[in-house]
Nucleic acid binder design. Structure first.
Length: 753
DNA sequence: GACCTGCTGCGGACTG
């Protein structure tokens, strides 16, 4: 189809609007999408880069459909962010005013009056979050059918942001519950960044259905990459703890370099954690102050108040005044901040996919390359250096990530998690919605063939009901109808119920009456302490435990605060590429001299330890299985060993093992035996496992379902078993064990003589 | 040794 054909299929009033807006032509993604959306019965994933016109690709034809009907229908647009709803409302309302189609933004900050107006006449375009949709189903059960009666199309923005989480399951369930109550399916259009495996996104949008895919990747643009290495001098052991002058010198040197190269243009700096955002923003602000130039560096992360974040976004958008944001992945999603010149990554990128998403913000103008500036910090080598330091793991992981990025590979989303935590929430919500539900009907709704939890058996569902009953979340009346229990009623009637994910308790940080942001309760603070927050230094005046407020005032000096959090997951492909880099001798063109020296030092250590062939590093009672697998497979191997009574857990290099009273030969025999045995059932594998509670409602699941849900997300048993089989063959062939070299309990490599 | 997201209904006081 040509651009003209596609344009001519749009409603004449929309055509006129595009003329008046001086659109030169439709983009490729729009040309492809328009005829598919106009068919009106297809589910479609539309994948393209940020700011490529995806929203219009869905809305121009969807609005054309609304205008072609006698009775105005309804488009429900679901967004993961309030900020995105506000952005889209601004763009969409200009067009829709011309078309006489009402647009209603609906989230927690929207007035009740605007919501009432929509409910009085539920048509046009509704822009809403999953949580607000949940509240609508839960609290307005009797009018849900009427509200969505005229529903014509679902549009789900940033689909990739939903895949693989409790919230994504919730979204699938909400779509399914609405279709169930209006007794027909509704076309679902998912808007997404390009994903490695588009079929995964299609299955997520409608499992088992036929989903059209529009993959309009605009072709890889040119990319300039340079990684600079910095060595951090470590104080010798024995120096007094107060004498840590040298600590953080590498960060300061990086800030000085950023100050020189970034000033005068717009950039994004990703230092991997909120704490480091604070550290670098402070350094950069102080450098600006010291040089008496206007500040160009602004912080952005999830614990800063909306006011501060909006300031940063506005600074980026403002033309004629350069601004750089030092940020976490809050600026990875599609909030409108305009194009940036370069993207800075400090430390190893969390994943190839995330690095790619971050880079999508740079090099967006034709002819301009995307620019990636990487920085890695390694400790100086010394007698006490750990194995991780000697192998230069961070630098090699950074190199592996960039090397995969340059090849166009990136991690596919993890779509196989069961997220049974969300089943608990959805069951309670459905009971509230229907004012009571029979067990078979509840099972059919949530676990039936097209439901969001279709893998669950009836037996498992009954087990869940019994557990929820025992927890007083649900009860059954004389007509065998499921109702909310006393505790269930309390949960459902509090607004915190609508979010599918858990959140920590937090203190508000207030300076002179204005809100700076929040800090987790786990961060202990006392009056008199000095902290860095929002890129500035503060004195803690008072901590009000009852009101959960920390009062601060401006001061000199202070340390960045700690935020809680648990680690991400490394994909096997990244570990395999790390191994290839270690085994090779080629120079990597995107590394500077220092970073290349780090890699060469890591390679030397790799050769000394013979890590290309050795798979067991012994060191006294401790050792490491060097697997080069992903974290999920390493954790699975750990569980398999634990099920045989061996103390083992996933580590940076593979699986860390403690032999206890056994010999290493006995550990090898155990591995051989595991390799030849059937994979044990999950209940046996996780029998003694503690700390499986990860998601909001996990505490309410029966043990067996908790194990099942955990394993579906966190354990890769297939990769684990095939590795065990591979090494057990090698063990039988009598490859020599690692014995001439060892390393001690702290993971330090011992001298070879 | 991570990061992010979101939130109702009601009662009471006030204004025009």
């Amino acid at each position: 189809m040509s651009a003209t054909d596609a344009f001519n299929q749009l409603d004449p009033r929309i055509q006129r609007f595009l003329w008046s807006e001086r659109w030169e032509s439709l983009r490729d993604v729009q040309i492809q999408s328009i005829p598919l959306v106009l068919e009106g019965h297809r589910d479609i994933v539309i994948a393209a880069a940020t700011a490529s016109g995806k929203t219009e690709a869905a809305f121009l034809p969807a609005l054309t459909r609304l205008l072609s009907s006698d009775r105005l229908g309804l488009i429900v647009y679901i967004s993961p962010l309030k900020a995105l709803i506000n952005d889209q409302f601004g763009r969409l309302d200009r067009l829709c005013v011309e078309l006489d189609i009402p647009v209603c933004p609906w989230h927690g900050d929207i007035s009740a009056a605007a919501k009432r107006r929509f409910l009085a006449s539920p048509n046009g375009v509704l822009l809403i979050t999953p949580e607000s949709l949940e509240a609508t189903l839960c609290n307005r059960g009797t009018s849900v059918a009427r509200i969505f009666e005229r529903l014509d199309t679902f549009v789900i923005d940033e689909l990739h942001a939903f895949i693989g989480s409790e919230r994504g399951k919730q979204m699938q369930s909400l779509l399914h519950r609405i279709e169930t109550i209006i007794e027909r399916t509704v076309p679902r259009i998912g808007l997404s960044a390009t994903l490695g495996d588009m079929q995964l996104a299609a299955d997520f949008l409608r499992s088992g259905g036929e989903v059209a895919i529009v993959d309009a990747d605009s072709g890889e643009s040119r990319l300039l990459v340079k990684v600079k290495g910095y060595e951090e001098a470590k104080p010798e052991p024995g120096t007094s703890p107060a004498d840590t002058e040298g600590e953080g010198m590498a960060a300061l040197a990086i800030a000085q370099h950023l100050f020189r190269v970034l000033r005068g243009s717009n950039n994004l700096v990703f230092p991997n954690s909120r704490r480091e955002v604070e550290r670098y923003t402070l350094h950069l602000n102080q450098l600006c102050e010291g040089e008496r130039v206007p500040n160009e560096f602004w912080p952005h992360h999830g614990n800063l108040s909306t006011a501060i974040r909006t300031d940063t976004e506005a600074a980026l958008k403002q033309k004629g005044r350069p601004a750089t944001a030092v940020c976490t992945n809050t600026l990875e999603l599609g909030i409108d901040i305009g194009a940036v010149k370069s993207v800075v990554q400090i430390g190893p990128p969390p994943s190839v996919a995330s690095l790619r998403q971050r880079l999508g913000r740079s090099g967006r103008r034709p002819g301009e390359p995307a620019i990636l500036r990487g920085y890695v910090i390694e400790d100086a080598l010394s007698k006490t250096a750990t194995l991780a330091t000697q192998l230069r793991l961070d630098t090699v992981r950074t190199a592996a990530t960039i090397s995969l990025l340059l090849e166009g590979w990136f991690e596919p989303p993890v779509a196989h998690g069961a997220h049974l935590s969300t089943l608990v929430q959805q069951l309670l919500s459905a009971i509230a919605q229907y004012g009571g539900l029979s067990a078979p009907k509840a099972y059919g709704l949530l676990c039936g063939a097209t439901g969001p939890f279709s893998g669950l058996t009836k037996t498992e569902f009954l087990e869940l009901l019994q557990q929820l009953h025992a927890e007083d979340l649900i009860m059954m009346d004389t007509s065998r109808l499921l109702l909310l229990g006393v505790k269930g009623e309390q949960f459902v009637n509090h607004y915190s119920f609508y979010a599918a994910f858990a959140s920590d308790d937090e203190f508000r940080v207030v300076a002179g009456g204005s809100l700076l942001g929040t800090l987790p309760v786990s961060q202990m603070l006392r009056a008199g302490q000095r902290i860095v927050f929002a890129g500035r230094t503060w004195l803690v005046d008072d901590v009000d435990d009852a009101e959960k407020v920390i009062h601060v005032s401006a001061a000199k000096g202070g340390a960045p605060p700690l935020f809680s959090g648990s680690g991400g997951r490394v994909h096997p492909q990244v570990r395999q590429r790390m191994r290839e880099i270690y085994a090779s001798e080629a120079a990597l063109p995107y590394l500077d001299e220092v970073a290349q020296r780090f890699v060469d030092q890591g390679r030397a250590c790799f050769r000394t330890l013979d890590l290309g062939t050795q798979w067991l590093l012994e060191s006294g009672k401790d050792g490491t299985l060097v697997t080069w697998l992903g974290d999920s497979a390493n954790e699975a191997i750990g569980c398999l060993l634990v099920s045989r009574g061996v103390d083992a857990s996933a580590g940076q290099l593979g699986v860390d093992v403690s032999r206890g009273e056994r010999s290493w030969d006995e550990i090898r025999a155990c591995i051989n035996d595991l390799a030849r045995s059937e994979v044990p059932p999950v209940e046996a594998l996780l029998a003694d496992a503690k700390n499986l509670l990860r998601e909001k409602w996990d505490w309410a699941l029966p043990r067996s379902l908790l194990q099942k849900s955990y394993a579906s997300l966190n354990l890769d048993l297939d990769d684990a078993m095939s590795w065990l089989r591979r090494v057990s063959t090698r063990a039988i062939e009598g490859k020599p064990p690692m014995s001439s070299l060892g390393f001690d309990e702290a993971g330090r490599v011992l001298p070879s003589n």
